[in-house]
Amino acid sequence: MMGLADITLFLDDMDFLSRAVIMAIAVAVPLALLSPFLVLKGWALMGDAISHAVFPGVVLAYVFGIPYALGAFCAGMFSAVAIGFVKNNSRIRHDTAMGIVFAGMFGLGLVFYVKIRTAVHLDHILYGDMLGAMGEDIVLAAAIALGIATVIGLKWKDFLLHAFDPVQAVVAGLSVNALHYGLLALISLSIVGALQAVGFILPVAMLIAPGAIAFLLSRRFSTMLVVSLAVAVLCSVLGVYIATVLDSAPAPTIVLLLTIVFLLVFAFVSLRQHGYFLKGRT
């Protein structure tokens, strides 16, 4: 049996393109599994808020010499709790609270980033560097993907009930707060896993687009999960290869590919609803 060090060494020995493909899949899996829940709950802005809010945690992690994943996760969870606290203790709407918290956290991160930029180079964390992913980055992303996939596989029905009807979830004996903050924790973890690959700027697109595409194509939530996963993995792998051909960055190429797929699916569904794909119709 290969140990963790052996797996990391094996991944380091692979060529950069193979590592990028594996990293793309490891990032796509958790984002795709969470995407349908965010789409159903209308939490697109929450994904954006957390993806920006983890920035100061990463910068401080570099300063104090602790794993950046730990700093990012702590900052993400702090932001999620802060948003809930502001919403529950004021008349401010949820989206307003998200906007205030994530803008403030991202601004704080930029201040820290500028102050230490001469000593520590964080551009690859800010913008992502999928082609430069090393073995330890892939192992971390894969471990997060496995953990999130396990939780979703065991609890997706509970999360689904909470997304559709929190009141019914309470009646069914579920802990709404545990599901709420559990989902936020999973979102934070998925963004931590995506940092090396896509940075802070693009995770929200990869967190929303697969679920939106699956929502247009599916009527059952279980099918929606499968479609979201398939679309995210396929676009991620194709995006890496297209980026190498075009000499482009993989992360924005993947996001652009997801956007194109969404537009094509949207056009197809719209035309089908108007009867353009029925027999005898041109």
Rank of each mutant, 00 (worst) to 15 (best):
F112M: 11
F112Y: 13
F112K: 02
K115Q: 13
K115E: 15
I116F: 14
A119S: 12
A119R: 09
A119T: 14
V120A: 09
V120K: 10
H121Y: 13
L122C: 13
L122K: 03
H124C: 03
I125F: 15
I125A: 09
Y127Q: 07
G128W: 09
G128N: 10
D129W: 10
D129L: 08
M130I: 12
G132A: 05
G132V: 01
M134W: 10
G135T: 10
G135S: 10
G135Q: 11
E136H: 13
E136T: 06
V139M: 14
A141T: 06
A141D: 03
A141M: 01
I144H: 02
I144W: 01
A145G: 06
A145W: 12
I148L: 02
A149K: 02
A149W: 06
T150Y: 10
T150W: 12
I152E: 07
I152N: 06
I152V: 15
K155D: 05
W156E: 10
W156R: 14
W156P: 02
D158N: 12
D158R: 07
F159W: 08
F159Q: 00
L160M: 04
L160A: 03
L161N: 04
L161E: 13
L161Y: 00
H162F: 15
F164N: 02
D165Q: 06
Q168V: 05
A169R: 11
V170G: 03
V170D: 15
V171I: 15
A172M: 15
A172C: 13
L174A: 10
